[in-house]
Design a binder for these strands. Structure first.
Lengths: 229, 229
DNA sequence: CTTTAGGAGACTGTATACAAGAACCGAGAT
DNA sequence: ATCTCGGTTCTTGTATACAGTCTCCTAAAG
């Protein structure tokens, strides 16, 4: 592996391996459909097959990997159609998260969210693109934590990573816009306006979808504004 | 194990083990907070630790198991609050599934859904309670398949199993009512009425929540009709 | 030239072994 | 009696080994 043993408090290898393979998939270093041969992956990461296997199961549950019994695991394929489908799910989930966050917000909530947004803005200005993506994800997760629904958060983490994957695969990054949308969402949550918070979260994802569609089929008109509402 | 090697086309042990442990958790044979010692589980199921470990990771990703590195795995705890939170997620997800199903339905859709409902009705009449639960889950999954959103389905399967868990833990089964609600949802989908389909799915989950609340806090008034809409 | 049987190689499935760390229990000190 | 220290035991983390299955290549038959 390039650098697995980072961070003092060493997590179990399986967790590091899971994170690393996931990163390789999201970044595209492991291409769609590419076979994940346990031996080779293990050698590449400098571990035995066992942690790799456990990681593959988790990544399969998250939808990054497809496993066919006795055949092997491959990086999942992400057709444009499947990629677009994700936005519908995100609207539902993130809309709910925003609504609940507005409902459950405390006086400290706004500061907490703005802290993440601040870091994100810095990262945008510094042009650290990967960090921007991570901080945007962190923002959404922070909203989820404010919402305080444990199962919602359990789903959100892999979903957001998948969203990163979708964007990386289509080369449709969009740093600056999302920041103002996040800020807008943050305000609605801070104000405790559930309807507005949900609406802004949904609008945010809808905007992301437009950006995605523009990258995937630049010519075609974007007539798909229907969906959740 | 009691009976793991069932079904001719033998799945990998890890899959059978995952299903079995999940079943043990949902049924309550493994209690909340109970330690999942790999050795013991492996011995109990008649396999080695390896499949058990892989299963535990998957079940952790699904939220059935809590893993603390170097300490061990336990059956997750499901506080009443956490249990209730699930209904919000279900409303969002199943509402979306119903909407998409109505949008994507084909002429064969109704028959397919009604087939499952028929089996469920039979099971209700025969008093086969566990089978009823499985068929209700199958119905929801079938709606998801009609919706044709792969990631949505990926989330739905564990979510529905978790819903089963919630009900089993609170002893709040409700066979007959859900059946008519399912039929009603089926009709809306068949008619292609997206709004109505979503509304009925949400209402169905809301009814399930009422049933849950009635079981959990029988005295307290149920004032929580707010949420997605 | 296409097709098909056979066998070698590659890879997954499962078990076992060993190392490292955490929990537990008892003995001695305070 | 309580606290603390030490060691024993239990359990997880990781690696290795072996068996079973699939794939792919080769070679012979049609």
């Amino acid at each position: 592996m390039t650098e697995l043993t980072l961070g003092g408090a060493h997590l179990p290898l399986r967790d590091q391996v899971t994170a690393e393979i996931r990163r390789l998939i999201i970044s595209g270093e492991l291409a769609q459909g590419e076979r994940l041969v346990e031996d080779r992956l293990a050698a590449r990461l400098g571990v035995s097959r066992n942690p790799v296997r456990e990681s593959i199961r988790v990544l399969a549950a998250e939808g990054f990997v497809q496993v066919i019994p006795r055949i092997g695991a491959t990086v999942a394929r992400l057709s444009p159609a499947e990629a677009e489908e994700l936005f519908d799910v995100r609207m539902a989930i993130e809309g709910l998260a925003a609504r609940l966050a507005a409902r459950k917000r405390t006086p400290e909530t706004a500061a907490r969210l703005r802290l993440v947004l601040g870091s994100a803005k810095e990262a945008v200005e510094e042009g650290r693109l990967e960090r921007v993506a991570d901080l945007n994800t962190a923002f959404h997760l922070a909203v989820g934590e404010v919402a305080g629904n444990s199962y919602l958060n359990l789903m959100m983490a892999p979903m957001l990573l998948r969203a990163q994957w979708v964007f990386r695969q289509t080369a449709a990054a969009r740093g600056p816009h999302s920041w103002s949308e996040h800020l807008s969402l943050c305000e609605a949550i801070a104000a405790g306006d559930e309807d507005e918070a949900q609406a802004r979260a949904v609008a945010h994802v809808a905007a992301a979808r437009r950006s995605f569609l523009a990258a995937v089929r630049p010519a075609k008109a974007q007539h798909d504004e229907k969906t959740v509402g």
